[in-house]
């Protein structure tokens, strides 16, 4: 059975809270990087909010972390490799990684490793729409939209308009699914 946690309001609030947080810093040095697939679109929304509210265009890139995963040898359902596009040199920049869900922290770990291969940013921050707990690594997001307690056998689904034609966050009990 599935339980709706949030609709489009939660996603909107997350984008504007993230904006308020980063607007305190130096926007010139900011590079927003969306983690594929849904983090890309959340990141894009943040970038366009920055443009609307301040008139500034911040740099934007996307990251596919598949080649940096640590469950390479036993993952049976292998996701299609997608393109990483980081259009500028991130040396001495403030990188903000954007993703939809943080769970074990392993995706964030892979993303940080991947970013480091592109250069040495002066800082890396992480914004996630949903923090569902269950961390297996010492990694905490800097900005969180929705914080919920889940168990490992539950599944958190984020639907966003660009991919799924609707805006919703739901939790599914995986027994019987």
């Amino acid at each position: 059975m599935s339980k709706k946690i949030s609709g489009s309001d939660g996603i909107k609030d997350f984008i504007s809270d993230s904006f308020n947080n980063i607007n305190k810093g130096n926007l010139e040095a900011l590079v927003v990087i969306g983690i594929k697939t849904r983090g890309e679109f959340l990141g894009k929304r943040l970038v366009s909010m920055i443009k609307d509210k301040t008139g500034k265009s911040v740099h934007f890139g996307t990251l596919d972390i598949t080649l940096y995963r640590d469950d390479f040898k036993n993952n049976k359902a292998w996701p299609q490799l997608q393109k990483t596009e980081i259009p500028i040199d991130i040396e001495d920049k403030d990188v903000l990684l954007v993703d939809d869900v943080i769970n074990t922290g392993r995706t964030a770990r892979a993303a940080i490793n991947s970013i480091m291969d592109f250069g040495r940013p002066s800082s890396v921050k992480l914004a996630v729409l949903v923090d569902r707990g269950n961390r297996e690594l010492p990694i905490q997001p800097d900005f969180v939209g929705i914080k919920i307690e889940t168990s490992k056998d539950e599944i958190v689904n984020v639907f966003i308009h660009e991919v799924d034609k609707k805006e919703e966050v739901e939790v599914i009990k995986s027994n019987g699914v």
Binding site: Y68, Q80, L81, Q82, K83, F118, G119
Partner: peptide, 20 residues
């Protein structure tokens, strides 16, 4: 062919190496 598209990006980086 699609996977190779993504691999091409790795070769365009300064550090041309991924841990896969």
């Amino acid at each position: 062919l699609d996977t190779a598209e993504s691999m091409k990006e790795v070769s365009s980086r300064d550090v041309k190496k991924v841990p896969a």
